[in-house]
Design a protein around this nucleic acid. Sequence first.
RNA 1: CGGGGAGUGGCGCAGCCUGGUUAGCGCGCCUGCCUUGGGAGCAGGAGGUCGUCGGUUCAAAUCCGAUCUCCCCGACCA
Length: 484
Amino acid sequence: MNKNDRFVKQLTPKSVDFSRWYVEVIRKAELADYAPVKGMMVIRPYGYAVWENIQRLMDERIKASGHANAYFPLLIPETFLQKEAEHVEGFAPEVAWVTQGGKEDLEERLAVRPTSEAIICSMYSKWIKSWRDLPLLINQWANIVRWEKVTRPFLRTTEFLWQEGHTAHAAFEEAQKETLMILSMYREFVEKELAIAAVSGKKTERERFAGALETYAVESLMSDGKALQMGTSHNLGQHFSKVFNIRFEDKNQNLRYVWQTSWGLSTRLVGAVIMAHGDDSGLIFPPKIAPIQVIIVPIAIGNWKENVLPYAKTIEEKLCSENVRTKLDGREEFTPGWKFSEWEMRGVPLRIEIGPRDIEAKQVLAVWRNTGKKETINFNSVNKRVQEILNEIQSFMFNQNIEFQQENTHQTDNYDDFKDIIESKKGFIKALWCGNQDCEDKIKEETMATIRVIPLSKEKEKTQGKCIRCKEKADSLVYFARAY
RNA sequence: CGGGGAGUGGCGCAGCCUGGUUAGCGCGCCUGCCUUGGGAGCAGGAGGUCGUCGGUUCAAAUCCGAUCUCCCCGACCA
């Protein structure tokens, strides 16, 4: 067995078995581990660091757009959940219930929140009395429990972490504006920070959030060609304000119900980053969210501790002082080759090698994780150049993902072609649709593809024609895909 | 929740069909020496009531039943 065989044995190649690669790389890279309760996982420090970066970058945006963070209770009385008919019907199958406190049975059972509309609305009805109280713009970072039948680490777990924004407005137009503002914020976040190309738009009635007037979503393609919802933004209309009695007196002394929105994105995004960017050697993190952006591997030869290590430490300190997340791997028990593979598997975007030859030449060797490209950098310009390279890697990864999305976005007006593409090539299919839910259901039955989004910017000329399946007059051009 | 597969030291597996010494192998781990520019080598060592509960038996990792968890494929979802 040669060295390469041995390496391959450690991680199922992505190209051979995508699902297996996914769960293996999560465990080997120590992102997460399974917990004893079905569908629950432990997010380990390396995985949690990714979430913390996502959280930080998202939180900045949430606050910059005028929202404030708050925290609402984990447990929701059953009667609260039941107020909005569609809401309770939608979530009933996956709610976990608390029925006992200590040894006493509770008079009313309590839901472990599957989402917080009910509890937040009940509070909003107390807080909102006047037009002066609006808009109310609150976000919370919280955990959520949904008793899903099938679970996968990060993508769908029984408990997950997310942010959920809940806003209340005086007019429909304001709520709609908020809904779409958040939608574009999510998309910008996904593309800029996660380096994943996205499409955004409205959901069909079938895919709409339980209780919402309209649901919008950002969707991306994973590298197996399946689509993943990256974030959703809902215009709740007055569905909740009417049942929770959230009213305000306007400037003309009329009593009115508020218009609401809610929106969220979750730890699922960690899974998205894994699936969108990884390769046969393991993870590849976009620099913006990488827990470690630069790994320094000293080449341990001879009395390297005297020759090499001090230089390596100096470089580490320099980069850290510039807020580049840098780690020096000075462990003596592993060879450089072992460390190379290890940090590649763990997705560190840039590796810096420094050995006696480099010291001699007053340089370091930088190696790109995504392309394998190598570049020598003079000692004096390490700080500047490393930061440039990290930016280059970020945009390279994004551009590459845009290309991937383009290559895997097909368009057809022939249903047989449609079936063929979904089966063989996967990816997005842009096709005309009549707007009829029955047709949408049939397409799902026949092809397992669903409508991911109806793009907002309708290109008028393209929406003219016939529905891909029923051949009735088309209502809109939509994105179909098989989805997670 | 339906169909399929799997649970044996940290990881990957063999053993089970046909019950019977001390449950074995590779990797990892610990100690020492030696190495280190793409997963080094040698020597010694630690670690397992075989997922859990119950049954059959003189005797169970092995046979039977139940249950939990994981993986894959469907129906449901961030």
